[in-house]
Amino acid sequence: MIDNTVVISTPPHVKSKRTTRGIMGDVCIALAPAAIAGIVFFGYMAFVIELVSVLGCVATEFVYYFIAKGGFAKKCKNAKLTCINWWKQFDLTSVVTGLILALILPVTVKWYEVLIGSIFAIAIVKMFFGGTGKNLVNPASAARVFMFISFSLTTYVAANFGPILEGETLTGATNLADYLLQNTHASALSSLDLFLGTGVNGSIGETCKLAILLGYIYLCARKVIKWWQPLLFLAVFGFTAVLLSGFYFESYRFDISLFLPHILSGGAMFAAVFMFTDYVTSPKGIYGQLVYYIGGALLLAVMRYFTKIEVVSFIILIMNILVPLIDKYCIRKPFGYVKEKKQKEGK
């Protein structure tokens, strides 16, 4: 009648259909518009970079799975079985990392640099710390910072925000500060240009904000991320940046019309939707998340005021490192919790 296949476990005996692989698949779909927009704007090189990055990440994970734990020789002997096991545990996280890494790189980057970056992201940032779910910082932003310091600096400075100007693209002069003083700049951009990404220099996936918006809507609809998180980040960031950019003018001026250019320029929006919301490296309780997003937004606004390069990746790393601390101190009180009255001493 009942054979040995009956499973005994603790409750619950029903579970949701959601899996890690499904969630990561959703993120890949959400990233697709940005990836396609990058190819449209920057040509076939963007596609090559995306391909190299994704393949590099997946291949690194695969090779690491072969080498690490359990004996290389043994695994080589049962190569077929090892491949099947790898496929069973493959959860698309490396694809997401590869895609995000490609999308936050400028199109002028060399393909071998991308390959090295993707190997760094997976092998050192993710797998050395224990693989999926155990990495301390976002692999993609860590890899971008690694490439930024290791390779041609000018490439990354050029991938700044601001209009494409001939002869000026490599100097870093086209920063937001100049752009905002529209009067002195001949080819100032409209907010619509920034939104669509037309005529704007930048990283492959960060320029077209419309594509990012599509991804955001998809992620919210699938309930992968919480809808208020990117909005909170962008609102706090935009408002603080507007406050600070008042100092650009000769006499301090509060100009709310700068709000849109601020949040639409650079990688802020991409980071808010796809990188700050990374499960592994963001806090878990609602209070921790509030601290994380508001803190990140404030830091980004302040750092952008002082620097001429895109600093979102650095901010993400800083906030990621703070997450264990945030998690430790932002613990929710249980439902029905009543604060214990301190007993008065001496009475």
């Binding site: 779910g133 249980p334 439902f335």
Partner: peptide, 26 residues
């Protein structure tokens, strides 16, 4: 099909357990 008897995979720290906890736990 009804009984969820899948093998567990690594925790993602996604916090979906805390999101639905009616007792506001972690």
């Amino acid at each position: 099909e009804e009984a969820a008897a899948e093998e567990p995979t690594p925790c993602l720290n996604c916090g979906k357990c805390a999101d639905v906890c009616p007792m506001h736990l972690m």
